Simulated assay, not measured.
Amino acid sequence: MQEVLVIGGSRYFGKRLIERLRDAGDAVTVVNRGSSAPPPGVRHLVADRDDEAGLGAALGGRGFDVVIDQVLYTPVQAAAAERVFRGRTGRYVMTSTIEVYSPLTAEAPLTEAAADPAHTAVQLDLPWERPEFVEANYGEGKRQAEAVLAASTSLPYAAVRTAHVLGGGAEDFTGRLGHYVDRIRAGEPVAVHPDSRPSSFIHYEEIAEFLAWTAGQSFTGPVNACSDGELDVTALTELIAARTGGRPLYGPPGAEPSPFSFDHYYGMDNSRAKQLGHTFSHIDDWLPGVIADAAPARQN
């Protein structure tokens, strides 16, 4: 049994992660601002992770075998976490993102070395306290957060670079699949690049499983987490259209292309995770079920 602290993540796949850890016999504590309660059988601490002193006070003298940070977005937050958790845990796992690769162009799946935290400049003086700035610089914030943890000599870390997470129905927490379902059913065009390129994806249950697995491992550094196989936006649109009985219409991307429409190749290589002992599903194993959940049959 491990003592595991999860920062944030009481909703969507974060909730699945917490349940997996609990059901595996770990003693799980969740810390968040109190906006959502964790599942039963989990200790709950209330603190704002951006209030460094308040977070430390809420933790008291507690230590943890593993900390899993689901809401680490900026280098400022990472620097504060390094100070708060130094000496409290032997392993710090942050949920990172495929978007750390967003400024890169490639023709083959990207390995972790393509975005090396050791070679990422950290800019703590940028306006990371402004939510609109963090949202507009999501990938950069994650890159720099990884770099802060990588530079620490006292906080062993792993950064799980999560592919685009897909789930249907209530698990479509970004609303991205709903965007396609709604437009196809309304006969409205989907704005995509004329030569859209594929990217990597992962099912919401599988990323929860991977994060729980990572908590029990000892490796450090970044690791890509994605299902085998890739998907481009046109194929996704056609599958949704087949499910809904609609006919997909396409328009130019304009300033706001539809979700998952990329004008450059955007796939990840998951070889490192496999070499460490994890097995991934293939996207074809779960995508039909996700689309069925996203586009339930109409009631007559």
Rank of each mutant, 00 (worst) to 15 (best):
R298A: 15
T111L: 05
L45D: 00
A242T: 01
A159F: 09
G8V: 02
W128Y: 02
R86G: 13
E230G: 08
G221A: 15
E52Q: 11
T111A: 15
R176W: 06
S35G: 12
T153Q: 12
G60E: 00
P131W: 02
A242E: 12
P222K: 11
F260R: 10
T162V: 14
G61T: 07
T279Y: 00
A136Q: 11
V42K: 06
Q77I: 05
R143M: 13
L231F: 00
P103G: 07
H278W: 14
L21P: 13
A108M: 14
G277N: 07
H282D: 14
V30K: 00
L104M: 07
T214S: 12
G14D: 04
A115G: 03
A215I: 10
A57L: 13
A191L: 15
K274E: 11
N270T: 14
V192R: 04
L21S: 11
V190P: 03
D172G: 07
E129P: 01
P156H: 00
E209T: 11
P75N: 05
G141F: 05
V71L: 10
T97D: 05
E205F: 12
A37G: 03
T97G: 01
D269V: 09
E19W: 01
H164T: 14
V67K: 06
T214E: 04
A212M: 02
Y266R: 08
F85R: 03
E206N: 11
G277Y: 09
G251Q: 14
S96H: 02
A27T: 14
H193K: 02
R33Q: 12
E107L: 11
D232C: 15
K142W: 11
D51F: 09
L287Q: 06
F201H: 07
G178A: 08
A158M: 04
I18N: 08
L177T: 10
Y250G: 13
V76A: 13
A297W: 12
R11H: 03
R83L: 05
P259K: 06
G246Y: 09
Y12L: 09
D172L: 10
R183Y: 04
A208S: 05
G251T: 08
V28I: 01
D284V: 15
P248M: 13
R43T: 11
F133D: 07
T97S: 15
G25N: 11
A191R: 15
E99Q: 15
A170Q: 12
